[in-house]
């Protein structure tokens, strides 16, 4: 269970980790203090483990910097819920084990208490008392996510196996 932090459309990786903190990329704990700074300057200070980032379409647009999902993961966020994700960000998140959920997020507002029911592929909005369906992720990607990312998958399986 956690609180929703609502963001808009097209949140870019420059919003998530601005280029001016480029020198902190090898110091993720320090970089995480600036996560989402250009979208909501209060977020990094006030976010609590278990909270959710909720956004519109195309979350994670822009650069390939994997530090973006990594620092989100470091905040202890349960999952990012968005209408859609940018391609590279989506794949990076799976690789680093940050859960991404695709759902219609219009009815969620900042402060809503959310709970994810993975088994039934639903998000429960406890504040407003309703449920939202999740769009399932493809089988192959789920296997990687279940292993805790591509590196664990490789350590476990030893090689990339065909589908």
């Amino acid at each position: 269970m956690g609180k929703a932090w609502k963001f808009g459309e097209n949140i870019s990786t420059d919003h998530i980790i601005p280029g001016r903190y480029y020198h902190l990329r090898s110091n993720l704990a320090e970089l995480a203090k600036h996560v989402m700074e250009d979208a909501n300057p209060d977020f990094a200070k006030k976010v609590r483990p278990g909270d959710f980032i909720v956004a519109g379409n195309n979350f994670g647009m822009g650069s390939s910097r994997e530090h973006a999902p990594l620092v989100i993961k470091l905040t202890g966020i349960s999952a990012v819920i968005a209408k859609s994700f940018a391609r590279i960000f989506y794949r990076n998140s799976i690789n680093v084990g940050l859960p991404l959920l695709i759902a219609d997020t219009d009815s969620i507002d900042t402060g809503d208490e959310l709970k994810v029911d993975f088994e039934n592929a639903k998000i429960k909005n406890l504040t407003k008392n309703f449920e939202i369906e999740l769009t399932p992720i493809p089988e192959f990607m789920r296997r990687i996510l279940e292993q805790g990312g591509i590196l664990n998958y490789l350590k476990e399986v030893g090689d990339l196996k065909g589908t």
Binding site: S64, R65, P69, I88, N92, N95, V96, I150, L151, L154
Partner: peptide, 14 residues
């Protein structure tokens, strides 16, 4: 195509 560091690491390894 562009990928993240981990995906490219996989490409370098395999």
């Amino acid at each position: 195509t562009g990928m993240g560091s981990t995906d490219v690491a996989v490409a370098i390894m395999l």
